[in-house]
Design a binder for these strands. Structure first.
Length: 568
RNA sequence: GGGCCCGUAGCCUAGCGUGGAUAGGGCGCCGGACUUCUAAUCCGGCAAACAAUGGAGAGGAAAUCCGGAGAUCGCGGGUUCAAAUCCCGCCGGGUCCGCCA
């Protein structure tokens, strides 16, 4: 509805100007409901005073419909809305669409969204969590934008790391007790078991060339379709994945497909990629193996070539990634990957091979996010230093339980929903390109710009609505809104635009920031405007505003994968 | 060495693609707001002890709200009536340029 209003404003301006203007020439403003700086631009072209131009334009516009007043102020053209006309249709829309409020209509376009794709060599750690949360939220946001979204998790179950671990298990390499002790409470989880073995076997791999040789033979056998070798490695991956999946279940993150790399090898997909690329004019083969020279595309490695296969013929990740993306490209109309910024170069190589050599038509986009630094020291998987999400969740839930005990309001079983919500929001609220330093204190903060604040606003809405049992006659409400109500309503109207923007820019933080602002406006409204004790026509209007706020907060939290509790 | 990303109060963050009004927020800090309670402790009070009252304190759909202090928008230059935003140069941090994924 906000977009329609903007459209009307555009029509008015275009009528006065007698030429078309962009929708972006109409912006939000702290002074008016909508504003335009078009007069400055015209002033520049015509070398005239912008204030005079703005005055002239305003004189040629007649407010109508939802627009009540138009004023020229210091060169700006300010538009003020007629909330008394707006309130009923706006509230009706929210009321009728409910969980679909803000949702765009189906586009019949399918997006293949790959995210998380953690190597099955250990637990999910906090850095990787950013990937999962951005990915999961994007899948929700894009679905809300009318796309058909399929989420894929790529399981690299035949890589070198997995071979090291599989060989380690086979030879019974002993795990380091002191590391196990550090993660005592999780030691029976598959991902931790695999991680312990990884640390031990990797130490052996680096110090014992014979062991390294046996690992390389395992990789070779697996890649040449040796079922036993493939299964040895796939089993390690499976064991690890089971542990990882527990975490995603706790986080409420679902994947449509887990794509096993071993399957692509079994089907010979990697082999055919190597055969095809060998014939490309960018191919270069020497004693070190098969590579591509992508210099023409500005992708020059130090060795001059991007390696696809080792000299013994076994593929490296790039070749397998190409095979994987060729398969994925058959499934939809657009591919999106969520990747750390450390993968920017490889992603460009991959994309270049797909679009320039394979001439792939469907778009391949990427969301790169910056690193999560961890407060208090270096993390190193190889040395057994990790910050597992298991621990993060446990700490968050514990903290939530403590808060609940202190306040004696909510029931204890609210703790996971609040604790996990806090973590998710904390990571999602920052724009992906910005590096984050993870601090327990900030992540577990329940004050201010945090999920519990937003959840609390939602719970308050629910509480008010629970207490009012009367039927509301929407047509009979009083239509003279207080300023706090106007600001709240305007914010509610902008939700659709927010959904659209975050989907186009692939940035969940836009939704997160919006929700905080909305919740904050609701809190102010609630403070200033008594709801249940107001006289009927006003009370009903405010009840409807409360209900609309509740609905939009709920829909927004859903887009972030955060639950909206009805009581806290 | 080259490419990409980041730099906004003590700390964290929005805004930057499309230049416009006093650079929005949050944490922390200082001050204030409605209401309930008075078991322990402290202050005040008393010759002393006890009680009452007051304050501190504890709580709350208050996980809230309001006010205040706090910013050379990394630095320097340029374009412009107007720069956090665009251009050039620099500084600091991250990241990549692997027969690891």
């Amino acid at each position: 509805m906000f977009l329609e209003i903007k459209e009307r404003v555009r029509e008015l301006l275009e009528g006065a100007l007698e030429k078309p203007i962009a929708l972006d020439d109409i912006t939000d403003s702290s002074i008016a409901d909508l504003s335009s700086t078009i007069a400055f631009k015209i002033a520049k072209e015509q070398r005239k005073d912008p204030e005079i131009i703005a005055d002239g334009l305003v004189k040629r516009m007649r407010p109508r419909g939802f627009i009540k007043e138009i004023r020229a102020e210091r060169g700006y053209i300010n538009f003020f809305l007629d909330y008394s006309k707006l309130i009923v249709p706006a509230l009706k829309e929210v009321r009728s669409k409910k969980g679909d409020y803000g949702k765009l209509k189906t586009r019949n376009r399918k997006i293949i969204l790959e995210h998380t794709s953690i190597n099955p060599s250990g637990p999910v750690h906090i850095g990787r969590l950013r990937n999962s949360l951005i990915g999961d939220s994007l899948s929700r946001i894009l679905r809300f934008n009318g796309y058909d979204v399929e989420t894929h998790y790529y399981v690299n179950d035949v890589g070198k790391q997995i071979a090291i671990i599989a060989q380690g298990f086979k030879e019974g390499i002993e795990q380091d007790e002191s590391i196990i002790k550090d993660y005592e409470e999780y030691k029976d989880k598959g991902d931790f078991e695999v991680f312990f073995e990884y640390v031990a076997a990797n130490k052996r791999f680096e110090s014992d060339p014979d062991f390294a040789e046996r690992v390389q033979r395992l990789i070779w056998s697996a890649e040449n379709g040796d079922e036993r070798a493939l299964n040895e490695m796939a089993n390690v991956a499976k064991r690890c994945l089971e542990g990882q999946r527990e975490i995603f279940e706790k986080l409420g993150i679902e994947f449509d497909f887990f794509d096993l790399e071993s399957e692509y090898i079994k089907k010979g997909k990697v082999r055919s990629v190597l055969n095809f690329l060998k014939k490309s004019r960018y191919a270069e083969v020497d004693e070190s193996g098969l590579g591509l020279n992508l210099k023409d595309f500005g992708l020059e490695r130090r060795t001059g070539r991007s390696i696809l296969a080792r000299s013994d013929g076994t593929s490296v990740y790039l070749a397998r990634d190409v095979a994987y993306h060729l398969e994925k490209s058959k499934l939809g109309d657009r591919m999106i990957n969520v990747l750390g910024e450390d993968h920017k170069f490889e992603f460009l190589e991959l994309k270049t091979i797909l679009t320039e050599i394979y001439k792939l038509k469907i778009p391949l986009d990427v969301v790169h996010y910056s690193f999560v630094n961890f407060e208090g020291g270096e993390l190193s998987t190889r040395r057994g230093l990790i910050a597992p999400v298991d621990r993060l969740i446990d700490e968050a839930v514990e903290k939530a339980e403590e808060e609940i005990r202190k306040r004696k309001i909510a029931s204890r079983d609210m703790a996971p929903l609040i604790g996990i919500g806090a973590i998710k929001y904390h990571i999602l609220k920052t724009t992906p390109s910005k590096p984050i330093t993870f601090r327990w204190e900030d992540a577990l903060s329940f004050d201010g710009d945090s999920a519990p604040y937003i959840q609390y606003a939602h719970a308050r809405c629910c509480s008010i609505l629970r207490k009012s049992k009367t039927k509301i006659e929407i047509e009979e409400i009083d239509r003279n809104l207080e300023d706090d109500e106007k600001r709240l309503l305007l914010k509610i109207l902008k939700f659709r635009e927010i959904v659209d923007k975050s989907g186009r820019e692939l940035k969940p933080n836009i939704v997160a920031n919006y929700l905080y602002e909305l919740s904050s406006l609701f809190s102010k409204f609630y403070k200033e405007c008594p709801v249940l004790y107001a006289e009927r026509a006003i009370r009903d209007r405010r009840l409807l505003l409360v209900d609309a706020s509740r609905q939009v907060i709920r829909n927004g939290l859903f887009l972030l994968g955060i639950e909206a509790p009805e009581r806290m």
